[in-house]
Design a protein around this nucleic acid. Structure first.
Lengths: 328, 328
DNA sequence: ATGAAAGCGCTAACAG
DNA sequence: CTGTTAGCGCTTTCAT
């Protein structure tokens, strides 16, 4: 095993306090002493034990990051942002997939209580609202992407209504009048917000909202995009454009359209959401709304660390962007 | 903050030792005492501090998991397997993305030295071989997927040569004679092994290996699949089938083929590798080799925990599977 | 079956 | 500027 601070102290002929200072507060130590201790540290290949430090400071410098599913590429950039912000400030992240499973969620929440983690970034839209609010009373909590309107949990997100509005307004601008919404379940705030934006854009152009063209699905998987498209194409009066609230859903829809010999964007135009890397690999490439994933993650982590340190923080909404590609 | 073991002891009228026993070794405590202490624990909502326990036991029960890139979907199932095996045994994982960056790698290696983690599962093919071997001398290390032939680090992987052999033999069986290999860089063991399998299948059918049809790329990104395909299609003598060592590469190739108006599998057949979820979303769906990701992860984690506990472990090669879909 | 006490490795008052 | 000292919360002998 590694050397301890005691051994370094003894070999350097100083007290453990001085060694500790050399590591955590070098300016408090006389140059000569510091150099000497530093040499011994290297000689002994000493690494301070995080275990001892943690107990003493009652901090683990670990951030719990909760995502519903690691396989959803939308979270990748966010996680990168979180990780970099964390490392920058000497933290590490515990990345946990809840699988929208309350039991797993509970296990992870307990990591906070047992002090294995100092705070939590929740990105799970299916999280138990009551439990999260309760947790936020006692521990630092930040929500990223999906958030809670009523509660007092700080969050980082985008203006979902505006983003949806932009997407649909663009479809209208290029000539579409029959626009379908492929939405998530209305129990999610972002789903309700995006529907708001969708309707706002239609209303603004005096287009009526046809509820036959609004498809809700609880599951954002690829197959559900296919299924939705199958339904939409079975309608007597078919839409000419689809706005899907997730790229994966859009890719599912695209596959269904392709396999029926129809053509995107000539027969049907398609807009996704999230700008996942695969949205660029389809044929044709997908027009989509880009969320600033990296920035969202980075901001969340900074916000959480501030909270841990006791600094007051404000929630923020970041800017989205409409990425126009070949599917429209 | 949470109650401490002291408070529970006091309120229960027993010593801290007894409380500790109730938690870690209930059979050592008399039924009546145990019930009483248990009640106080719940009453006080007590959670043992992992910090205190860790220091005392000199273990963090954290497993470091190193992947080159979180955005590569191939790792998703593996991570799931690791996580579940870990949780099952009371461990948690620290998921770290190296980005094939030696500096980041170093930071993560130091987490072992500073005892924040008890062991490491490395999945990064670009890992610094010397450093990893040195680390494995002093700490529990397991390699997953990519491994080191010479060293004595335990690993979990598949038989890459056999898998490639199966893929190519299948292409030959359905009538192809002009088969290209879209490979990774030969500095990686798996790339060399898959090439072996590729050549073996050709040789066995008395087909000569045309080096014009072997394309190596350092980067497994989608664009590099496109680029490779562009090159292959520019050849005077074009292959009729492609075996790509990664689905993403294959999807890039597919996009290039599609956008030239050519047709898969009629003009060119395509096989990928990894069975990532998107391999099923393309048009046409991708024939591919499936690696038992979940099992690989689960096995690696179990192996690592055994190592941490001082149990001897043996490396294993798990079975792959050829998934025949529409691209061949 | 239970308690007393030592100590894991470190940091942070406090004193000098 | 540096040393002494007291724990952080827990587990684990060693007694009883």
């Amino acid at each position: 095993m590694s050397a301890t601070i005691q051994e370094v102290a003894k070999k350097s002929g100083v007290s453990v306090a001085t060694v500790s200072r050399v590591i955590n507060n070098p300016s408090l130590v006389r140059e000569a002493t510091r150099v000497k201790v530093q040499r011994i540290i290297e000689e002994l290949n000493y690494e301070p034990s995080v275990l001892g430090r943690n107990l003493r400071t009652a901090k683990s410098r670990l951030l719990l990051t909760l995502i519903p599913s690691i396989s959803n590429p939308f979270y990748i950039e966010i996680i990168n942002g979180i990780e970099n912000a964390a490392i920058e400030q000497g933290y590490n992240i515990l990345l946990c997939e809840t699988g929208s499973n309350p039991i797993k969620e509970n296990i992870y929440f307990n990591l906070l209580k047992s002090q294995l983690a100092d705070g939590i970034i929740s990105m799970d839209p299916t999280v138990d609202r009551t439990k999260l609010l309760e947790l936020a009373d006692r521990y630092p909590v930040v929500q990223c992407s999906e958030y809670d309107e009523g509660g007092n949990i700080s969050y980082v997100s985008i203006d979902n209504e505006l983003a949806a509005y932009h997407a649909v307004r663009y479809l209208i601008k290029i000539g579409h009048k029959k626009i379908a919404l492929l939405n998530s379940h209305n129990k999610f705030l972002y789903a309700r917000q995006r529907r708001q934006g969708f309707e706002k854009a239609l209303n603004e152009s005096n287009l009526t909202v046809n509820t036959d063209w609004i498809y809700n699905t609880d599951n954002l998987g690829f197959e559900h995009g296919q299924r939705a498209m199958r339904h939409l194409l079975s309608l007597p009066d078919k839409p000419t454009a689809i706005f899907a609230v997730s790229d994966i859903l859009a890719i599912g829809a695209l596959k269904e359209i392709n396999s029926r010999g129809l053509h995107v964007p000539d027969d049907i135009a398609l807009i996704g959401f999230d700008k996942i890397s695969f949205s660029n690999m389809t044929h044709p490439t997908l027009t989509t709304i880009s969320q600033p994933g990296y920035e969202m993650g980075f901001t969340s982590a900074k916000m959480l660390i501030d909270k841990i340190k006791g600094v007051e923080v404000d929630s923020v909404l970041l800017d989205h962007e409409l990425i126009i590609r070949d599917s429209t």
